[in-house]
Write a protein that binds this DNA or RNA. Structure first.
Lengths: 226, 226
DNA sequence: TGATTTTTTCAGGGAACGTTCAGCTACGAC
DNA sequence: GTCGTAGCTGAACGTTCCCTGAAAAAATCA
């Protein structure tokens, strides 16, 4: 069984608004969250808090993300995910990034962060996570695989994300706008037709003989019936 | 069984008139409601009240909605619905909004707010919210389905809204003007004949052999008898 | 690099939906 | 009874929504 409330996450960023945004989201998911606005503070908080995962911004005044990462790792076992703006990703940064376990380029969707955190937890604290079973679906976040009636589906990354999201929210009508916000990120500029295209792909791969698994609720969105 | 009286809602808005309007409506639905006019007050009220849902205006003097949201979430599990004016919705706001569980753009219909509150409750406090059962009707807001004597009705989105509204207000005469206000919005420009057309469609789909479920009260409106 | 897969865009078509309208019916007042 | 009004009915219309096939763009891989 998967219990977010057992998992401790440390957020470090000098931008107050980003910190709030991430904290809000993660607390909403049930995680224990602590925040820090600079490196010194981060190291101090971590000493008592002993987080499983730290999410660090690379660019911070004073101690930079790499230095913080090094100090945190000295204190105990934890996974580090680095955040960096798009234009900061040069070779130098990439090289230093090796100290981290994963990194993400801003802007990113919240769901993407959740996925990364999961992946890291699976690697370093496998006892904290497990496979999710929902009706005929078995979702394996570590392997990025979904089985339907035991049969492994061949899904692309986006197809996986979408099906996972739909299945975890089965029985609930999800609008295309909501899906776009959650999976593509709030700053996605495209048309919501893309959701229709992916739904079509998923339906084809699920191809249930008798029944529609992903139902269209015209004007409102889609809903998965188990 | 669905009992609004078990559900606690906190309203936060600096505009007295909006606060009153919403409070009146929600109390009328049977919810426990507390109000606050600013962030500090909201956090204080929430400490004792422990609401299930908070409805926050984004723009408030002093602490803004995001900050209040963050503090409320720290105090305990609750769903947050943000309210925002149309011209405030830029990408920055949208981004921060993801921290909230849902958001609505003003102006909105009261029925829409009720629907959102339901949706949030279903997600975060599923034990509080079962299917709504009213006589022979079973209304499932998450699935957007209504059953009559156990039989699933095939309804369009507007038909669903209308039947839901009528059934939840059974025994009360609802004028066409009132129905238009609630479901079409106060700025609907059309004729009220459209309500007659929809009522007709519903009657056909309910097609009760012996009894008229949706009664016409000539000159006044319609009333559902269970 | 070139080849392959994945993601995204685009345009057309068809069905469902929301809305209007005009003719008709039923009710109530006088 | 009849007259006016309110509600009912069926059809028609324009629109929106969703599905679909294909192709362009981007990412990934060899």
């Amino acid at each position: 069984m998967y219990r977010p409330e057992d998992i401790k996450i440390l957020l470090v960023d000098d931008e107050e608004s980003i910190l709030q945004f991430l904290e809000l989201g993660l607390v909403g998911e049930g995680y224990q969250v602590r925040t820090a606005q600079d490196g010194i503070q981060a190291v101090n908080v971590a000493r008592d808090f002993q987080p499983h995962v730290a999410v660090l911004d690379v660019m911070m005044p004073g101690m930079d993300g790499f230095e913080v990462c090094r100090l945190l790792k000295k204190q105990g076992p934890l996974a580090v995910i680095m955040l960096t703006a798009k234009d900061e990703v040069d070779d130098r940064v990439k090289g230093l990034m090796t100290g981290a376990d994963d990194y993400m380029v801003k802007p990113f969707s919240f769901q993407e962060l959740l996925a990364r955190i999961h992946a890291r937890l699976r690697n370093q604290f496998p006892h904290l996570l497990d496979e999710v079973v929902v009706g005929p679906f078995r979702i394996d976040d570590a392997r990025k695989e979904i089985r339907y009636h035991g049969e492994l589906l061949s899904l692309s990354s986006k197809e996986y994300d979408l099906l996972r999201y739909l299945v975890l929210n089965h029985g609930i009508v999800l609008s295309k706008a909501k899906i776009l916000d959650e999976l593509w990120g709030y700053d996605f500029g495209g048309q919501d037709n893309i959701v229709e295209v992916y739904i079509r792909a998923l339906r084809e791969k699920l191809r249930d003989t008798n029944r529609q698994v992903i139902c269209t609720v015209r004007g409102l969105g889609y809903r998965v019936d188990l």
